[in-house]
Amino acid sequence: MYISKSLCDRFNNAVIYYISGDEMSKISIIVASERLDKLYPAATLAVTAAVMGWESEMFFTFWGLLALRKGFIPNEVSSDYRRFEDSLRKAISSEALPNWHSLIMEGKKSGRLRIYACSATMELLNIKTEDLAEYVDGVAGAPTFLTSAKDSDITLFIS
């Protein structure tokens, strides 16, 4: 993934380099979809890991980045599973499943969930830092994320 120097410079302050202790469990999840049926499994694992005392990080890239926009509410289900769309929506409206924002905020409250936006995708989709939700910890390029995810016990790619 190519990240232009100007972009790196522009977001330099926003990028958070995170190094965890050796003894702590850690999960790193790459999210490449904004669909309900992709976001919920990813966030459930990331948030649960965080409240279990693990270091937890999510890297939102490509269509996953759409989910980090301010006020985003996941609404669509992947086309293969559209027949379950109503029951998923019902689960969220009845609070059997937490809504997207409060699920993420539960993880953030633990102080162990970190959320990164992919810098290359921001450029691609013309999404600015001010467009990102307040819970985003930083903008990261592939090298930053890989460096951080290298020592994870669990790494997942969800798309």
Binding site: T48, V51, A91, S94, A96, L97
Partner: peptide
């Protein structure tokens, strides 16, 4: 009650 994973744990943690 009637909350799916991870709802019960999150409620407890709070």
């Amino acid at each position: 009650r009637y909350k799916s994973c991870p709802g019960p744990l999150l409620a407890l943690v709070n």
